[in-house]
């Protein structure tokens, strides 16, 4: 018996073989880029936050305003065809911040505008971001109920 031929590999064996043959992501370089860009986006948020705080606004107002401005910037940069290039460079560094959430709402809405303003823009707006709201809000309700049961 010679070596087992690739054509006779099981699915599992073939998957492992392809994995070995495939070029790998440059994890370290990608992670550094994500760290730097993600960090800088958060710095932008912090600076906005500092600015409003220094004008004597209360904490909740400041964080709401900061969110709104960051989301606006994410949406704007998407509309200007810049955010996709940022994402290509930074990966999670621009996906994970709230600006990436805005990008995930605007990009499908732009792409599917050709299918109309209701079923295109309106409906497709949430193909990527919808799950975030579904799971985020559901999680908050669940922990809220648990919190109620534990404390009251």
């Amino acid at each position: 018996m010679g070596k087992k031929m690739v054509k006779d590999f099981t699915h599992k064996e073939y998957r492992d073989y392809v994995e070995k043959k495939s070029p790998k992501s440059k994890v370290l370089a990608n992670t550094v880029k994500a760290f730097v860009v993600g960090g800088l986006i958060c710095v932008a948020g912090q600076l906005i936050n500092n600015f409003f705080t220094s004008r004597g606004m209360e904490k909740d107002t400041v964080s709401n305003l900061t969110s709104i401005i960051m989301i606006f910037l994410g949406a704007l940069l998407t509309g200007l065809n810049i955010y996709d290039n940022l994402g290509k460079f930074a990966g999670a560094g621009s996906i994970v911040p709230i600006t990436g959430f805005a990008n995930s709402i605007v990009s499908p809405a732009m792409e599917f505008k050709s299918e109309g303003y209701v079923m295109g823009v309106g409906a497709k707006m949430f193909v990527v971001a919808g799950p975030v709201l579904v799971y985020g809000i559901s999680a908050s309700i669940i922990v809220g109920i648990i919190y109620y049961l534990l404390h009251y």
Partner: peptide
């Protein structure tokens, strides 16, 4: 903000 700006920007711009 995400919904509103998302709508405005997607109406105003193109892929």
């Amino acid at each position: 903000a995400a919904i509103f700006f998302g709508y405005l920007v997607s109406v105003a711009s193109k892929s």
